[in-house]
Design a binder for these strands. Structure first.
Lengths: 199, 199
DNA sequence: ATTTTTTTATACCGATCGGTATACAATTCG
DNA sequence: CGAATTGTATACCGATCGGTATAAAAAAAT
């Protein structure tokens, strides 16, 4: 009952996500948002609460639609394939032509005013959670004898995440996908490829 | 002649640099700056022009005082030592206890509003300049047979810069120096160490 | 048709943004 | 001692910030 909403919530959230992704949390004004989403401020506040709530919902959508490769990658049977899928997955997302360059989880609020401290903290925890999940996956790999010798699982996880965060900056600076792929090839060089069993 | 200035320009610039480093260009307000520097707005504008001019002078100071290791590293005779000095130099700067975490060249304006587009562009060019300088050094190394086989000089340069940009994010997220050093150790693993000639 | 509920449009809120005009204080020069 | 010059303090500028009060518009329920 009541007056029906005149906009699609999902479309609006997609637009908000892209704006935050490109301009960061503080760099995106409510005017940017309402003009981009094609709605008025009361509508925005009615559905999303406030700017912070909108950002968190946009981040949630980002994780669900753009970072889904990550948890898929963790399911790979060999640790090296986990690492490679994650690295290429990030590079793909960071250089997709349909969206902004780089990574919302970094662009969102890397350095900011006190007003955005909560968002900043949230994004840091977000990154650390991914690293921890990957570390746990590599712990399993270690117990399976599936890690290159002489490496701690959580160090390997930090290494992979550091490369991906580096490519996020590279992408935000204009690097294209093939350039990032060459970086990834180098980053994986020390990690022996799985030998495929012959017929 | 005239009334003497009551503050030290260099001290004030140092403070501005640290503020921009920690909070970014747009995240640092003129109130943050004047309170931190201990001067009034007319004094700030009198000496530094405007906020943008102040940031550029702070960036200049940053390059001169915090990034001096970079061009020193380029003088190392062996390419691997160049790479390692750069990686550790960045990690040291990004985790120094006396200053903010991370890197001004990235924290300054990674994602921002249109108002900061010029600063953002300036920082991108800054990063690309460093990568180009390193690429040129590696070109020389290639001509000297001083690069690991199968790698292009400019790909290697991008690789090194990607790691350093990754550690900048890690540092901004709370990683300590030893953690970054372990990442660097892994990143350099594919690169054979110079064998020191025995006496 | 009227009431009720929800959304939308407009106009507005105080606070803060970067930046400056004006007046005054402190120094050197003649 | 003035006069000239330069820096500082205060108060202010229009614009924009995130957020909201108010009322009209559009649907469902009675």
């Amino acid at each position: 009952m009541g007056r029906p909403r005149e906009f699609d919530v999902d479309d609006a959230l997609e637009t908000a996500m892209e704006l935050f992704w490109r301009k960061g949390y503080e760099g995106t004004s409510l005017t940017d948002l309402t003009e981009g989403m094609g709605i008025t401020k009361p509508s925005l506040y009615g559905v999303f609460g406030n700017k912070e709530g909108l950002f968190l919902k946009a981040l949630e959508r980002y994780e669900r639609t753009k970072m889904n490769f990550f948890h898929e990658a963790l399911k790979e049977p060999k640790a090296r394939d986990v690492a490679e899928k994650i690295l290429r997955g990030f590079a793909d997302s960071q250089t997709a032509e349909t969206g902004p360059s780089g990574c919302l989880g970094i662009n969102g609020a890397l350095a900011c005013s006190e007003a955005a401290a909560e968002i900043q903290k949230c994004l840091i925890e977000n990154r650390q959670r991914g690293e921890r999940d990957l570390g746990r996956r590599f712990e399993r790999a270690a117990s399976e004898g599936d890690l290159p010798a002489g490496h701690e699982p959580y160090d390997l996880a930090r290494y992979i995440m550091t490369i991906s965060q580096g490519t996020a900056i590279q992408a935000a600076s204009g690097a294209d996908r093939s350039a990032l792929y060459r970086v990834i090839d180098m980053a994986l060089q020390f990690w022996p490829e799985t030998v495929v069993a012959q017929g």
